[in-house]
Amino acid sequence: MKAIVTVIGKDRVGIIAEVCAILARQGVNILDISQTVMQDYFTMIMMVDASGCAMKFSELSELLSSEGEKTGLSVRIQREEIFEAMHRI
């Protein structure tokens, strides 16, 4: 199952490493990453494949957002279909 991970927060050392480590521990494969820093704000968008993930998708979503909150990041994972539905006919 393909999903989009977005990470938004104040830029600092190690954000990518932390998020990728969580995803790796849960067996989520990263397919594509793009990231920028705009006015000190770090924005990363990843396309991932969560079909190898052992936990339920909703649990993975909770884990990412709670881990993110600990370090002041907004981390969310959403199934790709929502963006397809909204932006593609």
Partner: peptide, 12 residues
């Protein structure tokens, strides 16, 4: 693929 602006627009 969906581009980054579309993703950020949805989130906003």
């Amino acid at each position: 693929m969906i581009n980054r602006n579309e993703i950020l627009q949805t989130i906003e």
